[in-house]
Simulated assay, not measured.
Amino acid sequence: MFGLKLSHIVAGAVAVLLGYTSSAAIIFQAIDTLGATQAEANSWMLVLGLGMGLSTLILALRYRMPILTAWSTPGAALLAVSLAGVSVPEAIGAFVFCAVLLTLTGVTGWFEKISHLIPEAIGNAMLAGILFRFGLGVFASMEENLPLVISMCATYLAGRRFFARFAIPAVLLVGVVFCALTGAFDTSQHVAFEIAKPVFVMPEFSLAVLIGVGVPLYIVTMSSQNVPGVVTLKAAGYAPPVSNAITVTGLTSLILAPFGGYAFNLAAITAAIVAGPEADENPVTRYKAAVATGVIYCIVGLLGAAVIGLFLIAPKALVVTVAGLALLNTISASLTAALREPDQREAGLVTFMTTVSGITFLGIGAPLWALIFGGLTSLVLTRKT
């Protein structure tokens, strides 16, 4: 099909596996925080898989580039800590609002301007603060199941040392095997390997939720996902159609938001897999690896109920540890970038600590207050020319 090579299919399978193992646990936590029903959770996983698959196929086939899209992993982390007390319709309203902002960014070509509005240090500090508690969750889980967490952490260290690309899949595999051997899985739960069904939720628009969830979701998606996604493709030697690509992901988000497709964006880490020489020695035909990835994403998305079911039967320590270990590199890179510039360190630190504090004023969550406080600190302490 389309002259696919085995390397294209393998690269696509690895990208999908890495995408799901590194962040599906975080999405599950976001769904759990929101208190969505089982049917709604299944719908989320269905449309997230289909959204990534179809938007990837559109961009890869249209531009003949290994352009990969993804759900917003930092966005899922943000939702996991900011959706408490928010109703499902209000959350959907925030998703729609974020999708509108993403689409406008692509259609109007605002990307370059938007990317410069927030200092890099502050954007990275906010991301590090959002993800920080997931890293802490690894160590907190030791109280629940120390042998499981230790075995997964040991696998992670070995993986980072000897097979970095497959470290997280290896961690998940070891965790699953350990739970199977020790009887840690909840066998009372039923895993249904069937086609998931979309569940439409009429959005409700609450100003506090739009500002406290929708705006930060848009910001982290743009600054922490789309920017690295563009950089990844350029580093591989491509000139991606940035505005058009963001328009496609924005429209995909807008169409699928009422079903749980909270935000789609350009992929970075998984894109590096299909845009590299391992996928194809010829850069011209590497887009076929992205095509293979898109097809696999669609297939996995259709089995969204099974994906949720697997997380339901797993002990909490397994899910939390996989999510935390998968985010360690992102946390480290974000903190490093936040504190790299001497004149922005205090602003970055204020942003980070405000985000970690979890404060809520006027119904607005910590991430947006972190941007405000960090921005004010930067304005006061940084001399402008």
Rank of each mutant, 00 (worst) to 15 (best):
M1F: 12
M1V: 14
F2N: 06
L6P: 00
V10P: 01
V10K: 02
A13F: 12
A15C: 07
Y20C: 12
I27V: 15
D32E: 15
S43V: 06
L59I: 05
Y63G: 07
I67N: 01
L68N: 11
A77M: 13
V86K: 04
P89W: 02
L102Q: 08
V107H: 00
F111A: 13
F111P: 00
E112D: 12
E112A: 14
K113C: 03
S115N: 10
I122C: 04
I122Y: 01
G123E: 06
A140Y: 14
M142A: 14
L148F: 09
V149L: 13
G159N: 06
F166I: 08
F166L: 14
P169H: 11
V174R: 08
A180P: 04
D186C: 05
S188Q: 10
Q189N: 03
A196H: 10
F205G: 02
V213H: 03
L217W: 07
I219C: 00
T221D: 11
S224W: 03
G229P: 13
G229I: 09
Y238C: 07
A239L: 07
N244A: 14
S253H: 06
S253F: 06
L254N: 01
L256N: 05
P258W: 09
T270M: 11
A272H: 00
A275E: 10
E278G: 00
D280K: 02
Y297H: 06
L303E: 02
I313N: 02
V320T: 15
G324L: 06
L327N: 06
T330S: 15
T336I: 11
E341W: 01
D343W: 02
M353H: 01
A366N: 09
W369Q: 05
L371F: 15
I372T: 14
G374V: 03
G374K: 01
L379P: 01
V380D: 01
